[in-house]
Design a protein around this nucleic acid. Structure first.
Length: 321
DNA sequence: AACTGGGCCAACCGCCAAAGG
DNA sequence: CCCTTTGGCGGTTGGCCCAGT
């Protein structure tokens, strides 16, 4: 037996909201609040709507300070940057854009921004030369393009989540348990930090490194993000250093769009990125080709060294210096 | 004028985790 | 500890609008 529906679907109105319904809901919430129970709310005010529908209507349309209308270039940058960093975590992205709802951002991304971004990449690709050297050039260009100001914003976001006293480099797995205890014991509101060591990325990391990484800490709200507690973290800067290679190879093509969506895979790219090649013999892949990644060659120490070198190589914000 | 296809977006669906009994 | 209810989220859908034919 499946779970009971949240409301009696035969007796609730569906579809677009009327101005009268909007007015009822808005005035009630403004006066009384939601009362902590969305399911009961429509009955209180005589609306034949599902509580979930009321909640959605309020959050996405009626609540104060909602921004409607076109997105600015700055907002575009933030969305692109965060999407590449954390994927389709629309609520988190929305939290960085005051007045925008997750639904708005999701719609905007799916209908316009994705095409806009991929269109840009396509243009870049067409105007570029061939050869592996060119890939690096393209990678650098996109990286530079994203770096300012959007990447700085990402770093700010990242830093806002992460306690400054803890380094973001990989730590020796042998010490992880102690590190975790240390972090948990000393960081106020530890559970609010966005990391997830039970994600696929963590599993992949474990497979690709010689020693397993502890997966005890978990924050459900941030599942599948690329942050790890106790120092086994991957900074956004590092991830960007690995993404643009694939970004430049995207085009208007359903398969490629899917691949683009898969770009947020993170750690596998972190470890395998430099080993990825096109399946075709030419150095410039075409759209029939699949990307083939060589088996991971790096062990734990290699991973760590690579991260440390990369972090020091790049001009990173103060906390990494 | 009628039809059609695509873009856009509000709303719905279903899943998951937290909360509470 | 289990079960139910609720909130929250991301994915998907359906319908409106408009440009093109």
């Amino acid at each position: 037996m499946g779970r009971a529906p949240c409301c009696d679907k035969a007796n609730v109105k569906r579809g677009p909201w009327s101005p009268e319904e909007d007015a009822k809901l808005k005035s009630y919430i403004e006066e009384h609040g939601t009362g902590g129970n969305w399911i009961a709310l429509p009955h209180k005010i005589g609306l034949k709507r599902c509580g979930k529908s009321c909640r959605l209507r309020w959050l996405n349309y009626l609540r104060p300070n909602i921004k409607h209308g076109s997105f600015s270039e700055e907002e575009d940058h933030i969305i692109c940057t965060l999407y590449l960093s954390i994927g389709s975590r629309w609520s988190i992205i929305a939290a960085q854009l005051p007045g925008r709802t997750d639904n708005d951002i999701k719609n905007y991304w799916n209908t316009r921004l994705k095409k806009k971004l991929l269109g840009k990449q396509r243009k870049d690709q067409q105007s570029s030369k061939k050869g592996g050297q060119v890939k690096q050039e393209m990678k650098r260009e996109v990286f530079e393009d994203l770096k300012a100001p959007s990447l700085c914003m990402s770093m700010n976001l990242y830093q806002s989540y992460w306690p400054s006293e803890f380094p973001l480099f990989l730590t020796n797995p042998d010490q992880l348990h102690q590190d975790q205890l240390h972090v948990k014991n000393h960081v106020p509101n530890f559970n609010q930090y966005p990391f997830d060591t039970t994600s696929n990325q963590a599993e992949m990391f474990n497979q690709n490194c010689e020693k397993p990484i502890s997966t005890s800490a978990y924050h459900p709200q941030m599942a599948n993000t690329h942050y790890y507690p106790n120092g086994d973290g991957v900074n956004l800067f590092q991830e960007f250093n690995n993404y643009p290679y694939e970004i430049n190879e995207l085009d208007y093509n359903a398969t490629q769009l899917d691949q683009f969506d898969g770009l947020v895979g993170g750690l596998d790219n972190l470890i395998n990125g430099s080993n990825c090649t096109s399946s075709s013999a030419e150095s410039t892949p075409s759209w029939g080709d699949s990307l083939v990644c060589a088996p991971p060659q790096m062990g734990y120490e290699d991973c760590r060294r690579e991260l440390l070198q990369s972090c020091h190589r790049e001009q990173q914000p103060n906390r990494f210096q």
